[in-house]
């Protein structure tokens, strides 16, 4: 277990995409068996309609990950509105697993028990951070929009709390009630046919000028580029950030994890890792603007 460990922990964030049951299971089994990561987040964050299809397979995934010595955290929905979704949240909290809260809805029930604050709950400043720590939060995953300055200030409270920053993957930019994936097919969320399952790495949305700009994933909107904070890893470690999140994409995540692990352990330079990462990610550009206080879609050379 990684609790209290001050080293740099590598984590696999919750899978945002609607992969088939088989693909999902293969992915987590391979992460359990082959990936040098400390912690894995499982569970549906984007759309409650997807939950039933893989809920049955979750226990065997969790067991496999636990057996491999990984900390397992149960992620929860980012936007909760229906009675059914609220009940699902309450049911999750009943288990002994560590929970990642992504909607304030979870916080009341989690009061007093250790939990993770996910990136969909706004923690932008120290007072908010202090309050959530008093409520029981042990780790805070910062929003993708957070700048290095903000991360530094919140991570400086590292004695009281663990901080996690997403360092790989398409950046989540918004959540909604409406399903844009369905809408793009002329369907609605209620009649969706699970079209989000057709795009394992999300549906590209370009500007009217043909510039790739966004990725649609059900009710979620993400960046087109992969957020890649390899150049910034050393600086984040220096600030006291304790957890580094890789968000699953439809690429070889085991090798991605190995590249990040090597840079965190100073066994490889960021430049070397970037070159190797490009061979794994095809044509998808890299972005890192938010952490530099710039447009999220930009790439800032260090």
């Amino acid at each position: 277990m990684t609790i209290g460990k001050k080293a740099s922990n590598l984590t696999i964030g919750p899978l945002f995409f609607n992969w088939s049951v088989e693909k999902r299971r293969d992915f987590y089994f391979r992460i359990a068996d082959e990936a040098d990561v400390d912690c894995v987040y499982v569970g549906e964050v984007v759309c409650s309609k997807r939950e039933s299809s893989f809920e049955d397979h979750l226990p065997e995934i969790v067991d496999r990950l636990n057996a491999a010595g990984k900390e397992v955290v149960r992620s929860t929905l980012a936007l909760v509105t229906s009675e059914r979704e609220m009940n699902a949240i309450k049911a999750n909290i009943g288990y002994e697993q560590l929970i990642e809260a992504n909607d304030v809805a979870s916080l009341q029930s989690l009061k007093g028990s250790p939990h993770v604050i996910g990136p969909f709950i706004n923690v932008f400043n120290e007072t908010t951070c202090d309050f959530l720590v008093r409520n029981g939060a042990k780790r805070i995953v910062l929003a993708v929009e957070a700048s290095a300055a903000a991360i530094g200030i919140i991570a400086a409270k590292a004695s009281a709390i663990e901080t996690e920053v997403m360092v790989f993957g398409r950046q989540p930019l918004s959540v909604a009630m409406r399903c844009y994936h369905a809408r793009s097919h002329g369907l609605t969320r209620d009649s969706c046919q699970f079209v989000c399952g057709l795009d394992a790495d999300g549906l590209p949305a370009d500007t009217i000028d043909g510039q790739p700009i966004l990725t649609v994933n059900g009710t979620q909107t993400m960046s087109h580029g992969y957020g890649v904070l390899l150049n910034e890893l050393g600086r984040l470690q220096g600030m006291g950030v304790s957890h580094f999140r890789l968000s699953p994409q439809d690429v070889d995540m085991v090798r991605v994890a190995a590249l990040y692990r090597a840079v965190l352990d100073k066994k490889s330079t960021a430049a070397e890792a970037l070159d190797k990462l490009k061979t794994l990610t095809a044509e998808v550009p890299f972005i890192n603007g938010f952490i530099h206080g710039r447009e999220g879609l930009s790439w800032v050379e260090n």
Binding site: F120, A143, V144, E145, L173, L214
Partner: peptide, 8 residues
């Protein structure tokens, strides 16, 4: 919690 505008 929409970061689309700051993304652009």
């Amino acid at each position: 919690r929409c970061f689309l505008s700051s993304y652009m």
